[in-house]
């Protein structure tokens, strides 16, 4: 456990809460990409599939469940509760263009060819790209909602913390291996957020 990692986790959580709070307070999903949220639901489902077979810590288990719960709530809010305000026309990015390459990459580029490892790799690749429909929507509507921008900033800060945490751990711990998949995807992800 590392202070950067914990800070990253909480900033990530804060971002998700900000978005869900915006949805419920304004009762509108204007400016929010339902497709990005759908991708994040897929990301967390794939990554947290190991909840069923592995126990790391109470902190880990609780946050994984909270992340899943918030993301599913957000998806339900967009596609069910406030679907009348969902801007289907503008949120037009074809997500299969993101999902399919990630699935192919996960099958060939993973730590071990096991279900959990492939799921994990898939979740890391897809997380790097999941924000793309949101960025596409913001660029199309030409007006950036400040709450959505705070959400995007939180997610960018979270990934930044994680990448720094990995690099720091690698530098200071002789027996740690640099996880190339995670670091490379993390850097790609950061590029999208700085955009």
């Amino acid at each position: 456990m590392d202070i950067l990692q914990i800070f990253g986790d909480y900033v990530h959580l804060l971002g998700m809460i900000i978005l869900l709070a915006k949805l419920w307070l304004t009762k509108s999903c204007a400016g929010i990409s339902g497709k990005t949220q759908l991708l994040f639901a897929l990301v967390f489902t794939a990554r947290n599939a190991d909840l069923t077979i592995r126990y790391v810590s109470l902190y880990n288990t609780i946050l994984k469940i909270v992340y899943l719960a918030i993301t599913y709530c957000t998806v339900l809010s967009i596609f069910l509760f406030f679907r009348k305000t969902y801007d289907r026309k503008r949120d037009a990015f074809r997500i299969e263009l993101l999902i399919l390459p990630c699935a192919v990459f996960a099958l060939f580029l993973n730590k071990a060819f096991e279900t959990i490892e492939v799921f994990w790799a898939f979740s890391v690749y897809l997380e790097a790209l999941a924000i793309v429909p949101q960025v596409y929507l913001v660029s199309k509507s030409k007006q950036a909602d400040s709450v959505v921008m705070s959400y995007i900033s939180c997610l960018g800060l979270y990934r930044g913390c994680y990448v720094l945490h990995w690099l720091y751990a690698y530098k200071h711990s002789p027996n740690s291996q640099l996880e190339h998949i995670a670091v490379a995807s993390g850097v790609v992800q950061l590029i999208f957020y700085f955009d």
Binding site: Q5, D50, V56, Y67, S173, S176
Partner: peptide, 10 residues
């Protein structure tokens, strides 16, 4: 010094 396992992270 503990090594970092990214699989144990969120």
């Amino acid at each position: 010094n503990e090594s970092v396992d990214v699989h144990d992270e969120l």
